[in-house]
Nucleic acid binder design. Structure first.
Lengths: 175, 175, 175, 175
DNA sequence: TATGAATGAGACTTCATTCAT
DNA sequence: CATGAATGAAGTCTCATTCAT
């Protein structure tokens, strides 16, 4: 991966996250990356290819991130880790852009990629079972759904602070 | 509001909800509405004006819908009604499109319109207070956030069935 | 000529003079005249017809105006009257618009309508002959050409004051 | 400046001069220049930018042309040079188009650019002062105004021949 | 690898004109 | 006579993509 390739990916990530995929022109990406427009096509074939490259990179990053969560064997600790995922999304501008794009793109390219979360959901289900919850799979699914809701607010509601809600969840699950 | 104006609004709602605002051309809208393209601009000034007209109509519809929920004085009944909101989104194709657009557009036009839900959140907070919950406002906020998560799945995850989760929530809140 | 017809002509004169014929849409004229757009076409057939109606009215007005000048038999008095034509163009807003349009339209619809001035030129030539100028026809032509130059400045050069130049001409021709 | 850029400028100059700015479509310009329409916008941003590019080129050309006139120190020779400016406008088709556009555009884009002529007017004023004219500044202004009138006829009155009038002016100023 | 000129399709929009009421 | 909804052609401009250098 050359220097310019990375500059393109970085610029595209930022712009796609901020303005959306359809609304971002390749020329804007080129200007932002300080690169000729033609180069985008040489490296990524076409605009869709550029998006895919970003998402593939993203997939890797997410897998890596969740691997550590899924490995946790203590159920309460696992739930605690899941609850704290939203912190990761805010740690710095690049991560913020990255996660925002993951959420945003789902609404533009409508292929729900639930498989990314599948492993987490299974692990969570297992944790709830260990903790004797009555409907452990449903609990797991619900928790992830609720976290989706939190992420939505995080990226769309200006000034939204997740702390209170996350705290509430901690107490609900006694973790 | 003439016949053709309504046809335009209906077609635009459907297409914007399905393909997104930026990705839907006015010519596609015109063809879908069986109307000349120029007519869109005569009635709605420009593409953005068309979207706004849809959203204004939507605002009305939503206010009407929530008015009934908010008026409920029995706290358990109120929570029950809120939990069942997602049913409304699935009652028919037009409502489905309508609600999907409401959610989708937030990601394209990033102005979070939380005020639409404000009244509901207040009413919910009140209900939880009556029911002696420790953090009634947080509970209210959380419930709405979780419902946002459910709606997200509803519109993006093919084959998602909210029933289980909604049922789980009913039991959690003992309603 | 109905009330609305006159309103249309007046609005069109003003807009054509200010913005130009091609750059003024019939819808702008209709709005300015507080009249439906369709009415323009009922009365004047099409946009060009509207312009022609204005110009025909104009022709009449100009003929009337110049008739008086041409009738003058005293050569010095005739020249004096010609020199003062520019005053007429400034007497009020409507006359200003009227004359400006006459000049402006020549550049858009390139048919030089010298015949409007023909009678004046002949009379002027005659006057110069009586005054023993060596080239009376050329003198006449030149004077009208120079007045065209003055008019050009009058309508295009903001703040242009013709007084000095006109005064100079008076002294040159000893009138 | 690439080959095609020049072709565009040349075609636009010709068409704007002949048909007017508003009445010339960018597609006509593209066809005339044998170039894709998009290229116009790549190079000149928009239609107005194209016009501005033409006018900027023009400004340069005019400055160069007048520099030589203004430098003349002999007053009679200076006046003679000014009187002969109209010859330049007729030397070939491209110059004719160029000068016609300069005059024509003033009526469409109403910003009178008298500063272009300012230096000439000052030099002329000086010349008339040296020649002991009573009102040298007015004489200078008048001469330029009269030349504007001549140019107007040149471009609008089919078959107009300036020779007689220019000759008359030579004799009036004894140059 | 990298540039940026060039293209053609199609986007949004305006406009003169027609027509039912 | 008068309105304004409706149209279709044409206008300006953007965009993804290709290609010569």
């Amino acid at each position: 991966m050359t220097d310019k390739q990375e500059k393109i990916l970085k610029a595209a990530l930022e712009l796609f996250a901020r303005e959306g995929f359809a609304a971002t022109s390749t020329s804007k990406v080129a200007k932002h990356a300080e690169v000729s427009e033609g180069l985008i096509f040489r490296h990524f074939k076409n605009k869709k290819g550029l998006l895919e490259a970003i998402l593939v990179e993203g997939e890797k990053k997410i897998k890596l991130l969740f691997a550590e969560v899924v490995m946790e064997s203590d159920p309460k600790e696992l739930i605690r880790k899941v609850l704290n995922i939203s912190d990761l999304m805010l740690s710095n501008q690049e991560d913020f852009d990255f996660w925002k794009l993951q959420y945003k793109i789902k609404w533009e390219i409508e292929v729900y990629t639930e498989h990314k979360m599948e492993a987490v959901q299974l692990a969570l289900g297992n944790a709830f079972r260990k903790l004797k919850y009555e409907h452990p799979e449903l609990e797991a699914e619900f928790l992830l759904v609720a976290l989706d809701g939190i992420a939505t607010r995080l990226f769309l509601q200006d000034g939204f602070d997740p702390e209170g809600i996350v705290e509430l969840l901690h107490s609900k699950y006694e973790v």
